[in-house]
Nucleic acid binder design. Sequence first.
RNA 1: CGGGGCGUAGCGCAGCCUGGUUAGCGCACUAGACUGGGGGUCUAGGGGUCGCCGGUUCGAAUCCGGCCGCCCCGACCA
Length: 574
Amino acid sequence: MRYRNSLLPTLKEAPADATSVSHVLLLRAGFIRRMGAGIYGFLPLGVRVLNKVASIIREEMNRAGSEEVLLPALLPAEYFQESGRWDTFGDTLFRLKDRKRGDYHLGPTHEEIITDVIRREVKSYRDLPRSLYQIQTKFRDEPRPRGGLLRCREFIMKDAYSFHVSEDDAKQGYETMRLAYRRSFDRMGLDYRMVKADSGAMGGSGSAEFQVLVQSGEDLLVACKSCEYAANLEVAESAPLAPVGPDGEPPPVERVHTPKVGSIADVSRFLKLPEERFLKSLVYLAGGELVLAVVRGDHEVHEVKLARALGLSEVHLASAADVAKATGAAVGFAGPVGFKGRVVIDRDAANVRDAVTGANESDHHLTHVSVGRDFNAEVAQIRQVLAGDRCPSCGAELDCYRGIEAGHIFLLGTRYTSAMGGKYLDETGKEQTIVMGCYGIGVSRLVATVIEQHHDQNGIRWPMSLAPFQVQVVALGESPEVKAAVAQIEGGLEQAGIEVLVDDREERPGVKFKDADLVGVPLRVTVGEKGLKTGHVELKPRSEPDPKKVELVPLDAIVETLVLRVRRELGGKA
RNA sequence: CGGGGCGUAGCGCAGCCUGGUUAGCGCACUAGACUGGGGGUCUAGGGGUCGCCGGUUCGAAUCCGGCCGCCCCGACCA
């Protein structure tokens, strides 16, 4: 491909409204352009990368025995009405009406539609298992799109669905997908973790996220330094902490005056006791009632875990007025002793002996509080796991990371098939409900995610497997010798099936080098009169940060050298 | 949805507070010359309903009101 014939508009300065690294680089390097909030168009370079991401996923899905389908994005309301999601999906669903005033929506995900396909075609256990996938544009009216391609309202997703005769068989399908995901992300050169995740509103019995580790990620995770354990903070567990406080039965509860010291840090200093000896008590509004959540003074409540422990989808901190009503004291002096209502205590807080708590009376605390003796509470893991906590599976230390969710796999059970009549006849002729799994990968999000992990000050550094071109030839000057050499290299590479971009613009060398670094093609060949005098061209990998580190390769050997390097890099990741 | 910010040429910005004739600067773009290995220099150009609607005023990019759009933090996120 020749630069002069291509739309490759690079920008020296980034648009002011782009902040994340991938967003800035995708705009500057001319891969995408914004058409609206969370709505992007792909220019030629962007499409090339998008297609590479899709191809890798397609190859791995096919290898895993899944078959590609293409379902509509424009959908009559009846399917979501049947599953109930027409009402529960809320404002995230893009809804529209046709000319006959019928209700339609744009597909945010396709469990119902695929279930409809399967229930019509599958009648017998002999037809199972089945696995289908599609790569398609999805629409979600996100409350807050952000980060360019990282969170869009229109985006491209690979969604796969598997159908089974039993939970056991579904687990096998899930395992097959897990491997296909690993292979896909490995081939893309990503540093990621597979983590235990919350199934959320999807329902179902289990799920795992594939989180790409980057500082700019919006998800928080923990991973064990030694074993395979890794989890989203929303579901992370830790090994129990050792009890704190003196052995033996504490003295009776004592009420102490703690004037104007509400925070744990202040009271800790005032009473000269470490924060871990405190029971921090927070009042939450949970499903219409006020609930007291208790964690150790040096820990924080994780609201998603608290909500799950209570069997609810969400909880909110109570207002100051509600706190006063529930405890009879100002915020900062709540405590479990004598609290009228449900009390949930974190497992590690329940292990504090001789504790300090709020007294449910302004400016007062209680000391020598003993869990079980002075109050009763439900015990659950409701605190945030911290770096340095111990792994629940092997006891080694846990690390904290930030990640971008690139994929998510779910065991769905019969959530959709039972609501929509997805049934089959088993060997004995008895009607059974089909068991389901679903599996998503954010295809367009991956384009940005890869950049978040593969870039430097000068631009993008594509892995060979995803690069829009594998080789970029920079032609310096307009002399016949240079033109002939460039054409020779270009022809040789194309014959070998390698994608090559030739910068044949009438620009100064500096401009071409800067643009090449920005666009991030992995191998760069510079053809200039200087080198040609001795029969050489220059080869520089994009991964080499020093612009002066180029390798001289004889002109007649350059094509072979490049072909070998491209194949080696592709082979190593495939 | 709560909080904050922004909207002036394709991109980055100044001007607005304190209203006043042809609305500026850098990059990019067009033409020419010089230049030619890491975003060059000079000369001459083209490109704007100052987000939209209304109001105040002799006069509005500038003041006032309303609306729209976009970004960031948070809530939210199958």
